[in-house]
Amino acid sequence: MKQSWTLTKFRIMLAMRNRAFLFFGVIIPVALLFLFAAIFGRGGGRAVAYVLASILAMTVMGSFWGLSQQLVIFREQGILRRFRLAPAGAGAMLASSIFSNLVLTLPAVAIEMALARWVLHMPSWGNLAGVFVMVTLGGATFATLGLVVASVANSMMETQVINQLLWLAFMLLSGVTVPLPTLPAWLQTVALYLPATYLVTGLQRALLDSAGPSQLGAEILSLGGSTLIAFFISRQIFRWEPEEKLPSSAKTWTLAALIPFLLLGMWETRDGQRRAQARSIFRSTYEAPQRKQQNKPAPDAPAAPAPPAPGSGVRPE
Protein backbone atom coordinates (compact mmCIF):
# COMPACT_ATOMS: atom_id res chain seq x y z
CA MET A 1 0.00 0.00 0.00
CA LYS A 2 2.86 2.37 0.89
CA GLN A 3 4.45 1.66 -2.50
CA SER A 4 1.13 2.42 -4.24
CA TRP A 5 0.93 5.76 -2.47
CA THR A 6 4.56 6.60 -3.31
CA LEU A 7 3.96 5.79 -6.96
CA THR A 8 0.67 7.72 -6.92
CA LYS A 9 2.43 10.88 -5.75
CA PHE A 10 5.09 10.32 -8.41
CA ARG A 11 2.50 9.90 -11.18
CA ILE A 12 0.57 13.00 -10.06
CA MET A 13 3.77 15.03 -10.04
CA LEU A 14 4.62 13.93 -13.58
CA ALA A 15 1.09 14.67 -14.81
CA MET A 16 1.20 18.17 -13.33
CA ARG A 17 4.39 18.81 -15.31
CA ASN A 18 2.80 17.63 -18.52
CA ARG A 19 1.21 20.49 -20.45
CA ALA A 20 -0.74 18.02 -22.58
CA PHE A 21 -2.44 16.73 -19.43
CA LEU A 22 -3.54 20.23 -18.37
CA PHE A 23 -4.69 20.98 -21.91
CA PHE A 24 -6.68 17.79 -22.50
CA GLY A 25 -7.69 17.15 -18.89
CA VAL A 26 -8.84 20.63 -17.88
CA ILE A 27 -8.81 23.26 -20.63
CA ILE A 28 -10.50 21.25 -23.40
CA PRO A 29 -13.38 19.96 -21.19
CA VAL A 30 -14.03 23.48 -19.85
CA ALA A 31 -13.97 24.92 -23.38
CA LEU A 32 -16.36 22.18 -24.53
CA LEU A 33 -18.63 22.91 -21.55
CA PHE A 34 -19.04 26.51 -22.69
CA LEU A 35 -19.34 25.52 -26.35
CA PHE A 36 -21.97 22.83 -25.70
CA ALA A 37 -23.80 25.10 -23.25
CA ALA A 38 -23.93 27.83 -25.90
CA ILE A 39 -25.29 25.40 -28.49
CA PHE A 40 -27.40 22.94 -26.48
CA GLY A 41 -27.85 24.65 -23.12
CA ARG A 42 -30.14 27.48 -24.14
CA GLY A 43 -33.31 25.56 -23.32
CA GLY A 44 -33.04 26.54 -19.66
CA GLY A 45 -31.09 25.66 -16.54
CA ARG A 46 -31.78 21.94 -16.85
CA ALA A 47 -30.18 21.96 -20.28
CA VAL A 48 -26.95 23.19 -18.71
CA ALA A 49 -27.07 20.26 -16.29
CA TYR A 50 -27.71 17.91 -19.24
CA VAL A 51 -24.67 19.32 -21.03
CA LEU A 52 -22.61 19.15 -17.83
CA ALA A 53 -23.36 15.42 -17.45
CA SER A 54 -21.85 14.86 -20.90
CA ILE A 55 -18.78 16.98 -20.14
CA LEU A 56 -18.20 15.25 -16.80
CA ALA A 57 -18.49 11.86 -18.51
CA MET A 58 -16.00 13.00 -21.16
CA THR A 59 -13.56 14.19 -18.46
CA VAL A 60 -13.85 10.92 -16.58
CA MET A 61 -13.53 8.77 -19.70
CA GLY A 62 -10.43 10.65 -20.81
CA SER A 63 -8.53 8.82 -18.10
CA PHE A 64 -8.30 5.59 -20.07
CA TRP A 65 -6.61 7.43 -22.91
CA GLY A 66 -3.80 9.11 -20.98
CA LEU A 67 -3.11 6.20 -18.66
CA SER A 68 -2.75 3.57 -21.34
CA GLN A 69 -0.41 5.78 -23.34
CA GLN A 70 1.74 6.65 -20.33
CA LEU A 71 2.13 3.03 -19.32
CA VAL A 72 3.07 1.95 -22.85
CA ILE A 73 5.60 4.81 -23.06
CA PHE A 74 7.03 3.73 -19.69
CA ARG A 75 7.36 0.18 -20.98
CA GLU A 76 8.82 1.12 -24.36
CA GLN A 77 11.40 3.46 -22.81
CA GLY A 78 12.53 0.87 -20.26
CA ILE A 79 11.21 2.94 -17.32
CA LEU A 80 9.00 0.12 -16.06
CA ARG A 81 11.93 -2.33 -15.90
CA ARG A 82 13.77 0.11 -13.60
CA PHE A 83 10.78 0.00 -11.25
CA ARG A 84 10.71 -3.77 -11.52
CA LEU A 85 14.00 -3.89 -9.60
CA ALA A 86 12.42 -2.03 -6.67
CA PRO A 87 9.89 -3.51 -4.26
CA ALA A 88 6.97 -2.24 -6.34
CA GLY A 89 4.89 -4.98 -7.91
CA ALA A 90 2.49 -4.81 -10.82
CA GLY A 91 -0.42 -4.30 -8.39
CA ALA A 92 1.19 -1.19 -6.86
CA MET A 93 2.02 0.22 -10.29
CA LEU A 94 -1.53 -0.36 -11.58
CA ALA A 95 -3.20 0.90 -8.38
CA SER A 96 -1.10 4.07 -8.58
CA SER A 97 -2.50 4.64 -12.08
CA ILE A 98 -6.06 4.50 -10.77
CA PHE A 99 -5.45 6.60 -7.64
CA SER A 100 -3.47 9.29 -9.45
CA ASN A 101 -6.11 9.47 -12.14
CA LEU A 102 -8.79 9.93 -9.52
CA VAL A 103 -6.86 12.64 -7.69
CA LEU A 104 -6.32 14.46 -10.97
CA THR A 105 -9.88 14.06 -12.24
CA LEU A 106 -11.73 15.28 -9.15
CA PRO A 107 -10.44 18.90 -9.29
CA ALA A 108 -11.29 19.08 -13.02
CA VAL A 109 -14.79 17.80 -12.24
CA ALA A 110 -15.14 20.34 -9.40
CA ILE A 111 -14.09 23.19 -11.72
CA GLU A 112 -16.58 22.11 -14.38
CA MET A 113 -19.41 21.85 -11.84
CA ALA A 114 -18.59 25.20 -10.28
CA LEU A 115 -18.52 26.90 -13.68
CA ALA A 116 -21.82 25.28 -14.67
CA ARG A 117 -23.48 26.33 -11.42
CA TRP A 118 -22.11 29.85 -11.00
CA VAL A 119 -21.33 31.01 -14.53
CA LEU A 120 -23.83 29.06 -16.63
CA HIS A 121 -26.57 29.22 -13.96
CA MET A 122 -27.26 25.52 -13.55
CA PRO A 123 -30.32 25.53 -11.25
CA SER A 124 -28.99 23.06 -8.65
CA TRP A 125 -25.99 20.85 -7.82
CA GLY A 126 -28.09 17.73 -8.26
CA ASN A 127 -27.23 14.95 -5.84
CA LEU A 128 -23.55 15.53 -5.04
CA ALA A 129 -23.09 12.12 -3.44
CA GLY A 130 -24.48 10.53 -6.59
CA VAL A 131 -22.21 12.64 -8.80
CA PHE A 132 -19.19 11.79 -6.63
CA VAL A 133 -19.90 8.06 -6.74
CA MET A 134 -20.37 8.11 -10.51
CA VAL A 135 -17.21 10.16 -11.10
CA THR A 136 -15.15 7.97 -8.74
CA LEU A 137 -16.39 4.65 -10.03
CA GLY A 138 -16.41 5.86 -13.63
CA GLY A 139 -12.84 7.08 -13.26
CA ALA A 140 -11.78 3.73 -11.81
CA THR A 141 -13.59 1.82 -14.58
CA PHE A 142 -12.07 3.76 -17.45
CA ALA A 143 -8.66 3.84 -15.78
CA THR A 144 -8.63 0.05 -15.49
CA LEU A 145 -9.86 -0.30 -19.08
CA GLY A 146 -6.89 1.90 -20.01
CA LEU A 147 -4.59 -0.44 -18.11
CA VAL A 148 -6.00 -3.42 -19.98
CA VAL A 149 -5.39 -1.61 -23.28
CA ALA A 150 -1.83 -0.81 -22.15
CA SER A 151 -1.19 -4.47 -21.40
CA VAL A 152 -2.77 -5.72 -24.61
CA ALA A 153 -1.08 -3.24 -26.97
CA ASN A 154 2.45 -4.14 -28.00
CA SER A 155 3.39 -0.65 -29.15
CA MET A 156 2.36 2.97 -29.01
CA MET A 157 0.88 2.63 -32.49
CA GLU A 158 -1.36 -0.26 -31.40
CA THR A 159 -2.42 1.68 -28.30
CA GLN A 160 -3.51 4.62 -30.40
CA VAL A 161 -5.51 2.47 -32.80
CA ILE A 162 -7.33 0.66 -29.95
CA ASN A 163 -7.95 3.93 -28.09
CA GLN A 164 -9.30 5.69 -31.18
CA LEU A 165 -11.79 2.88 -31.80
CA LEU A 166 -12.96 2.75 -28.18
CA TRP A 167 -13.08 6.52 -27.83
CA LEU A 168 -15.14 6.90 -31.01
CA ALA A 169 -17.66 4.30 -29.81
CA PHE A 170 -17.88 5.83 -26.34
CA MET A 171 -18.28 9.35 -27.67
CA LEU A 172 -20.85 8.64 -30.36
CA LEU A 173 -22.95 5.85 -28.90
CA SER A 174 -23.10 6.47 -25.16
CA GLY A 175 -25.04 9.73 -25.11
CA VAL A 176 -22.00 11.92 -24.50
CA THR A 177 -22.22 13.84 -27.76
CA VAL A 178 -25.48 12.57 -29.28
CA PRO A 179 -28.31 12.14 -26.75
CA LEU A 180 -29.23 8.48 -26.42
CA PRO A 181 -32.97 8.97 -27.18
CA THR A 182 -32.15 10.60 -30.54
CA LEU A 183 -30.23 7.55 -31.80
CA PRO A 184 -31.97 4.95 -34.00
CA ALA A 185 -33.51 2.15 -31.93
CA TRP A 186 -30.88 -0.44 -32.92
CA LEU A 187 -28.05 1.92 -31.95
CA GLN A 188 -29.74 2.55 -28.61
CA THR A 189 -29.61 -1.21 -28.07
CA VAL A 190 -25.91 -1.28 -28.96
CA ALA A 191 -25.33 1.58 -26.48
CA LEU A 192 -26.76 -0.54 -23.67
CA TYR A 193 -23.65 -2.76 -23.91
CA LEU A 194 -21.17 0.12 -23.50
CA PRO A 195 -19.71 1.10 -20.10
CA ALA A 196 -19.79 4.76 -21.13
CA THR A 197 -23.60 4.65 -21.42
CA TYR A 198 -23.97 3.76 -17.73
CA LEU A 199 -21.62 6.54 -16.73
CA VAL A 200 -23.51 9.12 -18.81
CA THR A 201 -27.00 8.06 -17.73
CA GLY A 202 -25.84 7.78 -14.10
CA LEU A 203 -24.45 11.31 -14.19
CA GLN A 204 -27.60 12.61 -15.90
CA ARG A 205 -29.77 11.04 -13.24
CA ALA A 206 -27.60 12.38 -10.40
CA LEU A 207 -27.50 15.89 -11.83
CA LEU A 208 -31.02 16.21 -13.28
CA ASP A 209 -33.13 13.85 -11.15
CA SER A 210 -31.04 14.19 -7.96
CA ALA A 211 -30.56 10.41 -7.88
CA GLY A 212 -28.36 9.37 -4.95
CA PRO A 213 -26.09 6.34 -4.66
CA SER A 214 -28.97 4.16 -3.48
CA GLN A 215 -30.87 4.90 -6.72
CA LEU A 216 -27.84 4.26 -8.93
CA GLY A 217 -27.50 0.58 -8.05
CA ALA A 218 -27.22 -0.77 -11.62
CA GLU A 219 -24.62 1.84 -12.56
CA ILE A 220 -22.60 1.24 -9.40
CA LEU A 221 -22.71 -2.54 -9.81
CA SER A 222 -21.73 -2.52 -13.47
CA LEU A 223 -18.95 0.07 -13.15
CA GLY A 224 -17.65 -1.43 -9.88
CA GLY A 225 -17.76 -4.99 -11.22
CA SER A 226 -16.00 -3.99 -14.39
CA THR A 227 -13.29 -2.16 -12.42
CA LEU A 228 -12.56 -5.24 -10.32
CA ILE A 229 -12.47 -7.61 -13.29
CA ALA A 230 -10.40 -5.23 -15.44
CA PHE A 231 -7.93 -4.65 -12.59
CA PHE A 232 -7.54 -8.39 -12.08
CA ILE A 233 -7.00 -8.96 -15.80
CA SER A 234 -4.53 -6.09 -16.21
CA ARG A 235 -2.55 -7.43 -13.24
CA GLN A 236 -2.43 -10.90 -14.80
CA ILE A 237 -1.24 -9.67 -18.18
CA PHE A 238 0.97 -6.81 -16.96
CA ARG A 239 4.30 -6.69 -18.79
CA TRP A 240 7.42 -4.91 -17.55
CA GLU A 241 9.63 -5.54 -20.54
CA PRO A 242 9.30 -3.90 -23.95
CA GLU A 243 10.18 -7.11 -25.79
CA GLU A 244 7.65 -9.27 -23.94
CA LYS A 245 4.67 -9.94 -26.20
CA LEU A 246 1.21 -10.96 -25.10
CA PRO A 247 0.02 -14.29 -26.48
CA SER A 248 -3.13 -14.04 -28.62
CA SER A 249 -5.00 -16.30 -26.20
CA ALA A 250 -4.42 -13.78 -23.40
CA LYS A 251 -5.82 -11.00 -25.56
CA THR A 252 -9.13 -12.85 -25.74
CA TRP A 253 -9.13 -12.99 -21.95
CA THR A 254 -9.23 -9.23 -21.76
CA LEU A 255 -12.75 -9.21 -23.17
CA ALA A 256 -13.83 -10.58 -19.79
CA ALA A 257 -13.56 -7.00 -18.50
CA LEU A 258 -16.71 -6.26 -20.47
CA ILE A 259 -18.73 -9.13 -18.93
CA PRO A 260 -20.67 -6.87 -16.50
CA PHE A 261 -21.74 -4.67 -19.38
CA LEU A 262 -22.64 -7.65 -21.52
CA LEU A 263 -24.91 -8.99 -18.76
CA LEU A 264 -26.34 -5.59 -17.97
CA GLY A 265 -26.87 -4.85 -21.66
CA MET A 266 -28.79 -8.11 -22.10
CA TRP A 267 -30.93 -7.39 -19.06
CA GLU A 268 -31.55 -3.78 -20.05
CA THR A 269 -32.46 -4.79 -23.60
CA ARG A 270 -35.12 -7.18 -22.29
CA ASP A 271 -36.43 -5.69 -19.03
CA GLY A 272 -34.57 -2.51 -18.24
CA GLN A 273 -35.80 1.03 -17.88
CA ARG A 274 -32.60 2.75 -18.99
CA ARG A 275 -33.85 3.94 -22.36
CA ALA A 276 -37.12 5.12 -20.82
CA GLN A 277 -35.19 7.01 -18.13
CA ALA A 278 -32.88 8.59 -20.71
CA ARG A 279 -35.93 9.56 -22.81
CA SER A 280 -37.72 11.02 -19.81
CA ILE A 281 -34.70 13.11 -18.79
CA PHE A 282 -34.19 14.30 -22.35
CA ARG A 283 -37.87 15.26 -22.79
CA SER A 284 -38.08 17.03 -19.44
CA THR A 285 -34.94 18.97 -20.37
CA TYR A 286 -35.56 19.96 -23.95
CA GLU A 287 -39.16 19.31 -24.93
CA ALA A 288 -40.93 20.73 -21.85
CA PRO A 289 -39.26 24.17 -22.08
CA GLN A 290 -39.81 24.15 -25.80
CA ARG A 291 -43.57 23.49 -25.31
CA LYS A 292 -43.73 26.13 -22.59
CA GLN A 293 -42.21 28.69 -24.92
CA GLN A 294 -44.48 27.71 -27.77
CA ASN A 295 -47.61 28.02 -25.52
CA LYS A 296 -46.54 31.37 -24.06
CA PRO A 297 -48.43 34.35 -25.69
CA ALA A 298 -46.19 36.94 -27.32
CA PRO A 299 -47.62 40.32 -26.34
CA ASP A 300 -45.46 42.70 -28.36
CA ALA A 301 -42.84 40.83 -30.29
CA PRO A 302 -42.76 37.58 -32.26
CA ALA A 303 -41.85 34.51 -30.23
CA ALA A 304 -38.14 33.79 -29.86
CA PRO A 305 -36.87 30.87 -31.92
CA ALA A 306 -37.11 27.57 -30.11
CA PRO A 307 -33.89 26.46 -28.52
CA PRO A 308 -32.17 23.92 -30.69
CA ALA A 309 -32.19 20.44 -29.32
CA PRO A 310 -29.34 18.17 -30.17
CA GLY A 311 -30.38 15.67 -32.80
CA SER A 312 -33.54 15.75 -34.80
CA GLY A 313 -35.91 14.52 -32.12
CA VAL A 314 -36.59 11.64 -29.77
CA ARG A 315 -36.67 8.29 -31.43
CA PRO A 316 -38.73 5.37 -30.29
CA GLU A 317 -37.02 2.42 -28.67
Partner: peptide
Protein backbone atom coordinates in the same frame (compact mmCIF):
# COMPACT_ATOMS: atom_id res chain seq x y z
CA UNK B 1 19.54 -7.14 -0.92
CA UNK B 2 20.51 -6.25 -4.47
CA UNK B 3 21.00 -3.05 -6.44
CA UNK B 4 21.45 -2.89 -10.18
CA UNK B 5 22.40 -0.69 -13.08
CA UNK B 6 20.54 -2.06 -16.08
CA UNK B 7 21.92 -1.91 -19.58
CA UNK B 8 18.77 -0.46 -21.18
CA UNK B 9 16.62 1.58 -18.88
CA UNK B 10 15.45 5.11 -18.35
CA UNK B 11 13.48 7.41 -16.08
CA UNK B 12 10.80 9.95 -17.01
CA UNK B 13 12.31 13.07 -18.56
CA UNK B 14 10.40 15.40 -16.21
CA UNK B 15 11.67 13.76 -13.00
Amino acid sequence: QVGAVLQSTSLPDKL
